[in-house]
Nucleic acid binder design. Structure first.
Lengths: 201, 201
DNA sequence: ACTTGATTAGGACGGTCATCCTACTCTTGC
DNA sequence: GCAAGAGTAGGATGACCGTCCTAATCAAGT
């Protein structure tokens, strides 16, 4: 994995804390305690809390890119790869139940704070969006690929939000099944459905 | 409407600020400035910030109940009423684009803060859930009514989250159309679909 | 051994926060 | 007219925040 530098330790600890407690609610003391480092010592590694946030976002972006690239290699078909995306919800269901989606909750919080790193955080969404978009294009849905990508992204977000609110893992599995069915019925007729009255397919 | 008491002014101002800035990021000074009242004077009306939050939640619950009751009167069919629910997204699209869903973002924030009023805030979700559930039962879907209610709730949440992140109102309209189509195809065959392999209908 | 630069610890600073306190100003009933 | 209580103002308090500063420690090259 990554080197065992203090720098990385800080970013990893901050990453976890930002996810579990939120960015604003996580203080320097919290991170310091987690890394077991003096509070004032941070400023040799980061100029400000915002800079830590940026580092966290970029690590998340890099990890996500790595994951998507891996799927691009492993997944035989675009459909397989999209299924891998959907199954993130299953793999992370315990954490999602407790803390929600790491991407969605961070973007929502930064939007409320009107924080300068909103655009950077939103790149996490864009990353998934363009990747999904590409998979749908490969499935022959070039005209509505982005709509389908956004649709899937939105459904994942909704599932995470409600699973978190209701502390319900079963609901995640239930909705994942629906999403898989939706995808399957989407690929049954490989032909374009451009002029269909029901673009949900 | 409600009386013009200072108490109500505080709750209304807090309601707006909690929605726009988040609960934690809203200070007593912010609310004081909005109501044009001295900071220290709050404690004649509320014992603590948490108490203001509880008041805000209960006002939102009351308003939501009123809205749903109204739809119960106006909407000729259960389908009409569910359409009214879906069209909240259209009516509030400008605010959703800027601040997300008032219910979802509040519940997410309180979950991160591990706040004592989480259960109260979640009642807002439960309110919609049980109401939608009842409508689906009236549509003859008594076996999977709750699943359908949760499904619709989740999709609304996802739409709000992404519309906020991407600052995209068009996406809201696009997804609302899909949700309406989904509902329509759901009611076309009024018969039960209990043993269908695709419960999304 | 000694210097040099990176790393660390821990306290100081100014600001903001929720909360509390006290004094002042209304209103209202007698 | 006055007493009493509700409502108001604004400052004090202590805690915590992000940030900064300084001195101590460590590592490495000479």
């Amino acid at each position: 994995m990554s080197e065992k530098t203090t720098h990385n330790h800080i970013v990893e600890a901050a990453d976890q804390l930002f996810y579990r407690q939120g960015y604003e609610h996580t203080s320097f003391s919290n991170i310091a305690d987690a890394v077991k480092i003096s509070r004032g010592n941070f400023y040799h590694h980061f100029k400000s809390k915002d800079e830590i946030l940026d580092a966290v976002i970029h690590v998340r972006l890099a990890n996500t890119r790595k994951m998507l690239d891996q799927w691009e290699i492993e997944g035989k078909t675009p459909e397989d790869r999209i299924l891998s995306f959907i199954h993130i919800l299953i793999g992370n269901r315990a954490k999602i139940k407790r803390y929600g989606c790491p991407v969605g909750t961070l973007c929502s919080e930064l939007a409320k704070l009107n924080h300068g790193s909103q655009a950077e955080a939103n790149k996490l969404f864009t990353l998934f969006r363009t990747w999904l978009c590409r998979q749908f294009i490969l499935l022959g849905r070039k005209t509505d690929a982005d709509e389908l990508a956004m649709h899937l992204l939105a459904r994942s977000q909704g599932v995470a939000t409600l699973a978190n609110a209701f502390h319900d893992e079963k609901f995640i599995k239930q909705e994942v099944k629906l999403m898989c069915d939706w995808l399957r019925s989407s690929t049954e007729s490989t032909a374009q459905a451009e002029h269909s009255s029901n673009p949900s397919l």
